[in-house]
Amino acid sequence: MRKEEKEILKKKIEDDIAKLKVQIAALEEKTRPITPDCSLGRLTRLEAMGEQHVNNRVLDESKLRLIRLQNALLRIDKPVFGICIKCDDPIGFERMKIRPESIRCVECAGNR
Results as ranks from 00 to 15, higher is better:
21 K>H: 07
53 H>M: 06
59 L>N: 00
9 L>V: 06
8 I>E: 14
61 E>P: 02
44 T>L: 04
59 L>Y: 01
46 L>N: 12
19 K>L: 13
25 A>T: 08
29 E>I: 06
6 K>L: 10
32 R>N: 08
41 G>N: 02
16 D>P: 04
55 N>L: 02
6 K>D: 05
53 H>R: 15
20 L>T: 04
42 R>S: 14
58 V>W: 03
59 L>T: 04
7 E>Y: 04
63 K>T: 00
39 S>F: 14
25 A>D: 13
56 N>F: 07
66 L>Y: 10
16 D>K: 14
26 A>R: 06
12 K>W: 01
32 R>I: 05
27 L>Y: 00
30 K>G: 05
10 K>Y: 08
45 R>Q: 05
7 E>R: 07
65 R>H: 10
6 K>W: 03
62 S>Y: 09
36 P>R: 10
61 E>L: 05
13 I>G: 03
47 E>V: 09
58 V>R: 06
16 D>N: 05
26 A>H: 14
62 S>Q: 05
7 E>W: 10
47 E>P: 01
39 S>Q: 06
23 Q>S: 07
35 T>N: 15
10 K>H: 15
18 A>N: 07
20 L>N: 10
11 K>T: 11
15 D>T: 04
29 E>V: 11
27 L>A: 03
49 M>H: 12
61 E>Q: 12
60 D>P: 01
64 L>V: 10
11 K>D: 12
24 I>N: 11
8 I>F: 05
59 L>Q: 00
32 R>D: 06
41 G>W: 00
24 I>E: 02
53 H>T: 15
34 I>C: 02
34 I>E: 08
33 P>F: 07
17 I>Q: 06
27 L>H: 01
59 L>I: 00
33 P>L: 10
19 K>W: 07
64 L>D: 14
62 S>C: 01
49 M>Y: 07
13 I>V: 08
66 L>W: 09
41 G>E: 15
59 L>F: 03
37 D>Q: 07
27 L>C: 00
29 E>K: 15
42 R>W: 09
